[in-house]
Design a protein around this nucleic acid. Structure first.
Lengths: 194, 194
DNA sequence: AAAGTTAGCTAACGAGTATTAGCCTGTCAA
DNA sequence: TTGACAGGCTAATACTCGTTAGCTAACTTT
């Protein structure tokens, strides 16, 4: 890993732990294993690091939700869909990089317009619209009863979002939260399946 | 309003806007209309202000959810319950003090154990258990079909929490979000009523 | 009236901040 | 071999931060 990448990774870790304003350039440098002034060979300054991190977040968002790449994959079996979804959530909860990025976003969203916009776009336009499309697909296939797909997308995703943020705060609750998510998904499809 | 109260209110406003580490003692003093050193006649230091604010948050939590004071009030009419709930949420969204407290909490929850604990206790043990009790009461009264009340409480509260946090980020979306919440509640009771 | 307390002020300090200037060394292309 | 450059370093700067000391004026208590 290059020094530049190491700086970004270290900065993300520290920003997630102590916030942007709670992290000093010296702290980042120390954790990377260089002196603070050396950092300026790779970035213009502290804010430049922040912006690079935001660009990363944006790129990751684009990667996951850009060009509707997840739309169109309508599952055939409900059980399989639940299983796959729980596994995706487990990964999202556990992956340290994704977790740090999430915590970083939650903290800085009110002080940075771009981050506020990314957060909303990710949650609303990204995840929710994705599930809405899947639900619509399942309705057309006759797996789910017809209904307000946008509302159903909100109702299926919101409890998951709430529990993920709980696990971010209390990592111990991961196992229990995943069980609840599984139950929630089963209950959702039990209620609305045709 | 006493200077001490004015300091706390100003500090909350600034902490919500710029975070604890992004707010200077001088900034607080300036907004109160005094010089920074005068602030030390009312508080031991910056951290003391933070702790007073946390105590306030805790007291407010206790006020709302302590001693199960909301438990036991089981509504008779679903329509009335929905209407009252939407009004409560509208108030929660709009009240500037509550809003600031919420934003402050969201930002600092990862850097302060007490705040992490308050956040979890408020969301899970407070709001969710409260709705769980109401749902159980409605089940016993025969208004709602029997079911997993904890799961239903999660499913009724999570979309509301998601939309409140969206409105905190984008105040313009308040009206639309309240409409969605109304629809969500109606849909919920339509689905589970006996 | 005298004494004490409260709550403001100015001046100042020491620590920590982001950043810059300038030097040195190893790598690689010309 | 030479020269450019990348990427580390030390030293230093200018600034902001939280906090303390000590003065003063206005109430409050005795």
């Amino acid at each position: 890993m290059s020094t530049k990448e190491k700086i970004l990774e270290t900065a993300l870790t520290l920003f997630a732990e102590n916030g942007y304003n709670g992290t000093s350039v010296e702290q980042i440098a120390q954790n990377v294993g260089i002196k603070a002034p050396s950092l300026y060979k790779h970035f213009k300054g502290k804010e430049d690091i922040l912006n690079s991190l935001i660009n990363q977040a944006e790129a990751r968002y684009e990667e996951n939700f850009g060009s509707d790449k997840n739309i169109g994959k309508v599952p055939d079996s409900i059980d399989e869909f639940i299983h796959e979804t729980v596994e995706k959530i487990r990964f999202t909860m556990s992956d340290p990089l994704i977790r740090k990025m999430r915590i970083f976003l939650v903290q800085e969203q009110f002080r940075n317009e771009r981050l506020a916009e990314i957060t909303t776009r990710h949650q609303i336009d990204g995840i929710q619209k994705m599930y809405q499309a899947i639900i619509e697909g399942m309705m057309q296939k006759g797996i789910l009863a017809k209904g307000d797909s946008a509302l159903l997308a909100l109702e299926i995703t919101a409890p998951v979002a709430l529990l993920i943020s709980k696990v971010d705060r209390l990592p111990n609750s991961k196992k229990e939260s995943l069980k609840i998510i599984q139950k929630h998904l089963e209950h959702f499809f039990e209620t609305y399946k045709k």
